[in-house]
Amino acid sequence: MAPKTVPPHLADAHGARELPSVIVDGYSLQLRDKDGFAGDAASQTAFRALLEQWRKRRRQKGKDDPFGDVASRDLSKKELDRVLSRKKASEGADLLEGAIEEFAEELAHVVRRFLREPSWDKVQRIVIGGGFPESDVGERAILQAAMILQHMKVRVPIARLAHEVDDGGLIGWVHLVPPDMLAAHDAILAVDIGGTNLRCGIVKTRRKKAEDLSQAKVIQRMKWRHADDKPSRRGLLDRLSEMLQELIDYCAQKEIRLAPFVGIACPGRIRDDGSIARGTQNLPGDWESDTFHLPSELSKKLPTIGGAPTTVRLHNDAVVQGLSELPFMQDVHHWAVLTIGTGLGNASYTNTPGRMERLEKEARAELAARAKKAEQAEKAAQAAKAARHAKR
């Protein structure tokens, strides 16, 4: 079990910013430029809009559209990758190359814009996550953006997630679990709710293999492309609880020591009480309502796990995905993540190695001082009592 001296706010707060070995300097920044929010130009949605513009210009010239009548937003990643990977040159590939180049320029502009923010000005490395980079089209766009940044003499390198993209938003939760739960169990449940997909899985901590949690692994996962079904907010929660129950049953069957914990990552600004302040416009329904509290709603559907009350914690999806990289960012002091999905997520961090040890030492010193003070008070009380008896 974790020491009782660990401050509670490090163990179980929603949207926690101060963690044992890292501080979240900022996240879900909404940067404005003359055209609106800067991040809107560097999302997967923005790329599809650029592709549609390239196709429209071609049609206006009286030329055939190689993608036919299918809207750009409805073209699958696999289909786009197939067009791009053909050995022979094609009109479809030319359109894609044009959209990729334009998107890369927008992404480079957005990166430079973030680096001017106070919470980003010391960033030494940027990790790119989200669903867009998992495609060949997305990977090429990011590589081109990195080259543009080098040409601009921006010295901050861009890196890819060490984990599979689908897993990063789940694995990051191992760094946010209350320490006593982490010590007493082998696995946790994690959820990543995006504007297009809902992912959930069983994350094994594998602490015996790596104390820094660098070997944490998703051993069972489920994915639902909810954007196709267009569920209500309640419908999404109902389906989520069913998916989680399947994972709980799987752990029971495999005799996996599952912690009574569910970590939920979603877009937006998370208040410390677990409500969502803003940023959920891509999710179905109103998630920012004063009468809606996601952790409580899920706790009602899954009140216990393994006979213990269920703890549900909420945090921003970019923060969680970035935290999956924490063990691999120990060679830098300041770093950040951009998640390119339906929208653009962002978070920045400062590593604080030894911070937990210092906090525990300070807490032990404070407890020792209190104990000494109490002992002195007890001795003074006994001396006063003895003096009263002597007078009698």
Rank of each mutant, 00 (worst) to 15 (best):
A259K: 11
G169D: 01
A42C: 10
P267H: 00
E97Y: 01
D186Q: 14
A159S: 15
E91Y: 00
Q281I: 00
M222Q: 13
Q321M: 10
K61N: 09
D12E: 10
P284R: 03
R269V: 11
L31C: 06
R278W: 03
A318W: 09
M1Y: 04
D12F: 06
L338A: 06
D273F: 00
L240V: 05
R206S: 08
P309V: 10
D12V: 06
T350W: 01
P178H: 13
G98N: 11
H226M: 05
R269P: 00
A277Y: 15
P231M: 01
N316V: 10
H9R: 06
G279F: 00
R221V: 10
E325W: 09
V70G: 06
P3I: 12
G306D: 01
G343A: 07
T5M: 07
R207Q: 15
I248V: 14
P260E: 11
T205N: 07
L50Y: 06
P179Y: 09
A381H: 02
L338W: 09
L302P: 05
V312K: 03
I276S: 08
A49V: 02
K87A: 12
P3H: 01
L294E: 06
H334L: 09
S289V: 04
I126K: 11
G172S: 03
V83R: 08
H293S: 10
A146D: 07
L344R: 07
A141Q: 03
I128V: 14
A377G: 02
I126F: 10
H226A: 08
A259M: 15
Q215A: 08
